Amino acid sequence: MKRRAIEAAGWLLIVAGGAALVLPGPGLLCLVGGLALLSLRYAWAKRLLRPVRARAFLLASKGVQTWPRIVSSMLGGLVLVGIGIVWGVGSPVPRWWPLEARWWLPGGWGTGITLIASGGFAWGMIVYSFRRFRGHPITAPDNASLASEDRPLTPVPSR
């Protein structure tokens, strides 16, 4: 029963992630989460997850090595929260809007809450990356190390 629940949750995250790639929401995160769950059961998912995980850690490390990157990322999260609030509250349809009024900010608070949650999640990931990688950047693994699941990303030596 547990095995089937994990598999169902993995596929559900994959489907939700695919939808969130074109809709507001953390699409890539859902895809990675789905792959992580499916990798507990399938070798193909484990093979797909390894390079994605390595790339995600590399980008997270690079994203917190300079203050301009940190500040711009935090502002990006704030913009997501602001857009979510505006989307939820709604605003009148502007005169320049070429479509019918029903297509202006569709989804209401459902969409707004996902945008707000995405901004909050972004802040959490920035804090996590800052605490884990700031001052300890990682190097990109080569393709050979991606083939081995036992070889982690290597920290750059301190100078």
Rank of each mutant, 00 (worst) to 15 (best):
P98D: 08
G84Y: 01
I138R: 11
D150G: 07
L75D: 01
R102M: 11
L146W: 03
R102H: 12
V86C: 14
D150T: 14
S72A: 14
W67P: 09
G120P: 04
A101I: 10
P98S: 10
G82E: 00
I126R: 09
T114E: 10
G82W: 00
V79L: 14
R151S: 09
A144F: 06
A101D: 14
D150A: 13
I85W: 14
S129K: 09
R131H: 15
R134I: 01
W87R: 13
L153I: 09
T114D: 09
S148G: 10
I83P: 10
L80C: 01
S129V: 05
A117D: 09
S129E: 09
W123N: 04
G84C: 03
L59M: 15
L75F: 02
F133M: 12
S148W: 11
I116A: 01
R95D: 14
S118T: 03
I85L: 15
V127K: 10
W104I: 00
G82Y: 00
L75R: 03
G119M: 00
D142C: 08
W109R: 02
I113C: 07
L146K: 00
G108P: 10
S91W: 00
W87C: 11
D142Q: 07
V71L: 06
P137D: 06
W103P: 05
S73V: 08
S148K: 14
A122K: 11
A147T: 08
A122W: 12
W67D: 13
P94Y: 06
R151V: 14
A101M: 09
D150H: 13
G76C: 06
I126Y: 12
A147S: 13
W67E: 11
S73N: 10
L105W: 12
T66F: 08
G108Q: 07
V71P: 02
M125E: 15
P152Y: 00
G84K: 06
I116K: 08
S118A: 04
L80K: 03
F121M: 05
P141T: 00
W104A: 01
G108L: 02
G88H: 05
D142P: 04
P92I: 10
W87Q: 15
G90P: 10
A117H: 05
I85H: 10
R134S: 04
T139Q: 14
H136C: 12
I116F: 02
P92V: 11
T111I: 01
G108V: 01
L105Q: 08
S61R: 01
G107I: 04
G135Q: 00
W67L: 12
G120Q: 07
F133N: 06
W97S: 12
Q65D: 05
I85G: 09
R151L: 11
A144I: 10
